[in-house]
Design a protein around this nucleic acid. Structure first.
Lengths: 162, 162
DNA sequence: GAAGAATTACTCGGATACTGCGTGTCCGAGTGTAACGGG
DNA sequence: CCCGTTACACTCGGACACGCAGTATCCGAGTAATTCTTC
């Protein structure tokens, strides 16, 4: 149960696009070179971000990708769900109703309420999602600017020159 | 990034052991029949719970497994880590230091502090772990007893007869 | 010199192979039980 | 009748195949810029 590395790539790429911030789109090859990532695979992740509505794609010569919304309106949860999909971490298969134990539970209301295991794990997952939703791309960028003020300029030098 | 189904099996099996609660161990075949699970694979998960210190194994004839601690002392986090391993969901590969952007960041302190992306995702993971650690096996069992009082007796009838 | 059309080069988009982990299974080592024989 | 020994059956423990999702890659469709021709 480990998160796909595409999430890390997506967040850094979105941050780079927020830093560059000229009206022109940036091509996949430029974004990949920025962090030495395999271009075709990064391209696949960027497509997922477009489908999720986080990026705008510009086709044709001198095309590329640019942010579809302001960095304040993009949460970490949006990025994770765009890459990983919106399926829950824990999916209950209702084994409580199977086997000898399930057969012994003949009462009509024994399974009326949700499975307590599912509820317990679900509460933890809700806390995780809320913590992700509470942090925006702008927050992460601001934290980086405060801790390492040179990074923003480095991104503009590496990707801003066209 | 979905959780292994072994987690669901482990929690239900631990709950069943807590309900049965006679001093004698319960064999894998009995536990598997309780929820119609594939015995050999459940056995593999139970071994992981033994390695994590949640179960005691009793070898030999009429052997099996029994809880190593009281249900109040077993948290949902213990179970998840025992099955899934204690590696973090998000592992930072420090791509911020790679590629053109990393090369432009020549400042000595640009990478001194932790990556902001890692910190942001890590905060969410901490919230998830804390929510899991706050719920014990006894809590889940109590919730089931309140919602479906017949389940405990059903487990004892299905697994308690030896 | 300016306008229009054809060409060109570059980009995104989806469809296609490969690898690692989760899933499922099996057999051997070890131990407690039970039966058996002797005192 | 009681005790020691032997054989046994059952259990756990780790090692061995299979399938699917993540990983990595490629080529085709589409578009904007460019260039050439014509007026």
């Amino acid at each position: 149960m480990r998160m796909s590395k595409g999430v890390e790539w997506a967040v850094h790429t979105l941050l780079n696009l927020a830093w560059v911030d000229h009206g022109r789109p940036v091509a996949t090859a430029q974004l990949a070179a920025g962090h030495d990532l395999p271009g075709p695979y990064l391209h696949k992740q960027l497509q997922a971000l477009v489908r999720a509505g986080l990026l705008e794609s510009v086709p044709g010569a001198r095309g590329g990708f640019l942010l579809a919304r302001a960095p304040e309106a993009i949460s970490m949860l949006d990025v994770v769900l765009a890459i990983e999909g919106d399926e829950p971490l824990f999916r209950c298969t209702e084994i409580r109703q199977c086997g000898l134990v399930g057969a012994e539970c003949s009462g009509p209301d024994d399974f009326a309420l949700p499975c307590a295991v599912k509820s317990a794990l679900g509460r933890a997952e809700t806390a995780w999602r809320e913590a992700l939703a509470a942090q925006s791309l702008a927050d992460v960028g601001r934290a980086t600017d405060e801790h390492a003020p040179n990074v923003g300029g480095a991104v503009r030098r590496a990707l801003g020159s066209d």
